[in-house]
Design a protein around this nucleic acid. Structure first.
Lengths: 190, 190, 190, 190
DNA sequence: CGGTAAGCGAGACGGTACGTCCCGTCTTCCT
DNA sequence: AGGAAGACGGGACGTACCGTCTCGCTTACCG
């Protein structure tokens, strides 16, 4: 019934991911079609449908391959500096072609629960977990308040980034990251 | 060239908005089609194309009509309480059919700059301005730190809500609003 | 539900029939595709599907237009001569591109009852009726035996032609028509 | 290059013919596919392609196996009776599933010259030859006119049967065979 | 009598065409 | 002139099969 992964053609797989990525850059995520990917990759449509459930799933794989470890969190011992470095890297990525691709996938995910789950599990979860761990370590070391609701904290920090990213309310640069971090660390209260 | 608005049929306009809204609820934003709206509304397709540039523009109008003033900010004199009330109302709305419709529009807006502008100008901007004004008033009254970067503050607060909303990372309830507000008001730092 | 024939585009209809006919000549009936016809005619596929149930129905219309009245029976007063003239004309037609097209339609009709009915009603029946009438007139005039089973007689005469035509058992020429007519008129018996 | 017949799997061969025949009965000749036969027979597609040039060739083999000697001509000394018996048997066969299968093959043969040749050589020719021989014997014995064009005579008789069979112009029963034979033996002329 | 080459089941592959859905434009006829 | 209706050229969908191919496996022959 379902295909045998050991017989999968690596060559086709790579041609598909690379064609999908190129097309997304050229046309924008929404204008990419399965037919277009197949034609560009020199592949039959069925070969795509055999291994991916939708064009968005192909693009997700292409995005994962392209992002790699470029926005991993590093631990220098200074929580604020670590967050600033990583959030700036993320903000930078959001401004590239990869960012447009990612935004397109989040858009698709609004009407595709399977895709939503995939995005969360494979893209979001590991990075969220890394930041959460860093915050917990900071709390253990006394830099961060010990009673912190870690999940809410992560979403507070990155929510601001995603807000600018998806609602395009303004430039997504290092200054914005600094302003966000400053506020989040010290609070709004007088 | 462009149509004369004074001759526009109010009856058709309302039938279209109502059909669009019903279809969005039944099928999800992504599965709504212009043909479907026209058929449901008993209207020619051209009548839709004459007055709206895209199906998303129709849905945006339908959404605006449905939201009305249900999430307006009120001023009780207590900034934290006012924010809590409004954010809880927004969070509640995000969980309804209207929320799904709104998410669908934000999704479409990722690949439709005109729509993105419309959403920002007509839905987002007035509410953002109201919150910003409230924060400025709080600063003047001493509840809020006087050097506040108001824009960043608004996006910090609402970013967390939109993050949960669009990335579906967990329940969007009063507890989450409380946790977010608590953090944002007092800061992460120990 | 079903389309309104008064709004049908005559131009598209003719382009479709002519493209279908040309393709059938170039490739053979079996290799004609709806997509090919649409492309050649500069027409959307849906325009074909709107008006015809299958590619064979298109080809049948094309064939009808091309055959016209070229094989109508004429009445000279001599039954044998009239039959010889008409059967020779039919035999001649069977040897042309139109013959190949007709054979292809009969082939398709083996697995398409609707097409079979159309072929019988619009192509076969009028010509069979004309021959039957001629035989009845011949019987009235004393040239043909008066107790003739007219239907069986028509099928005896044309059966031989269709046998050669569809089973390709030998040349379908005037000699064969003569041999068949000679036999049928006088009988096999010593 | 070409496969070695001594190593051919008899079991697979029979499974293929039997699957092909069953599918033709269930779906009709036109809807049978090589993939379907392979799946039903529990056989790889290549095993079919190795031994037959097309699905029609498989079905032809299946048909030959199923027909066997059921419509052989017998010689009682009375030509008219022998023809009547054999033609009635053929007419009966044409009305069965085997008849539909045969019609499907003749249909395919309209666009497949190799198949046409196979059908003629292996199905048609032996039976035609038998009838021709019987007519020649009848001529020698004085029952049949001595100057008979034997080929035309065979095609006259069987042409009528095939006409009804392929053009479905009416019931193919003993009465029709009788009417045809009566006409052919005595002639149309008054 | 053990190696090897063939046939075999299985099914992935590059392709073509299917019949359907919807797009945005257009034309027609009605109010 | 606006609107209901819907035909039109077009593009993409997801599916079904085509005929070729590449895998392991089993099986029979042959050195």
């Amino acid at each position: 019934m379902s295909p045998n992964p050991t017989r999968r053609s690596l060559q086709s797989q790579q041609a598909i991911l690379s064609a999908a990525y190129d097309l997304a850059r050229e046309l924008g995520t929404a204008k990419v079609t399965i037919e277009g990917i197949a034609a560009r990759a020199g592949v039959g449509k069925q070969t795509i449908y055999r291994w991916w459930p939708s064009k968005a799933a192909v693009l997700l794989d292409a995005l994962k391959a392209a992002v790699g470890g470029s926005i991993d969190l590093t631990d220098t011992g200074d929580v604020a500096a670590d967050l600033r470095a990583q959030m700036t890297a993320v903000a930078g990525l959001f401004g590239t072609d990869l960012g447009r691709l990612y935004a397109g996938l989040i858009a698709e995910a609004q009407s595709d629960p399977d895709l939503a789950r995939s995005v969360k599990e494979t893209l979001l979860a590991p990075r969220v977990a890394a930041v959460a761990d860093r915050l917990r370590k900071g709390a253990a070391e006394g830099e961060i308040r010990p009673d912190l609701n870690v999940t809410a904290a992560v979403e507070l920090l990155y929510g601001a980034l995603y807000y600018r990213f998806l609602l395009q309310s303004g430039p997504l640069d290092a200054d914005y990251v600094d302003a966000t971090l400053d506020l989040a660390l010290t609070g709004l209260r007088a």
